[in-house]
Amino acid sequence: MILDLYNYWVVIFLMMSGFYTLIASNHLIKKIVGLNIFQSSVFMLYISMGKVAGGTAPIAAEGIDTYSNPLPHVLILTAIVVGIATTSLALALVIRIKESYDTVQENEILELDRISDEETQA
């Protein structure tokens, strides 16, 4: 019972740690790391689902008739590369934020925003 669902529970734990890092952390880069953890927990879920008992890697060979499911592998393979591309976009945004606000702490950015709003109103 526990062994049957252990993978899924670890996935849920990883997902929730990523989620916690995302909402509780104040530093933008740490938020991105949390988002990455969240993302790779989804990868783990897909790959766990694709595994078949007694199967091998889905590369056709002589004398093997049980293969793991190739479809999740395809989806996740492309998702990883797209994930790094979008992560780099997020990091580029962080660099621009650093250059214009001179900080990457979320509360300080909000504070600076509030000050500039008040100045434009006054």
């Binding site: 766990s48 078949v52 592998h73 790094i84």
Partner: peptide, 27 residues
């Protein structure tokens, strides 16, 4: 271990290689 060799390949190259380098450049 879960038979996804192609995915493992990609994750090792992307996650441990490029992602770390980009994060280090950013910090």
């Amino acid at each position: 271990v879960l038979d996804a060799v192609d995915v493992a390949f990609t994750e090792a190259a992307v996650g441990a290689g490029i992602s770390t380098v980009l994060m280090l450049a950013t910090i």
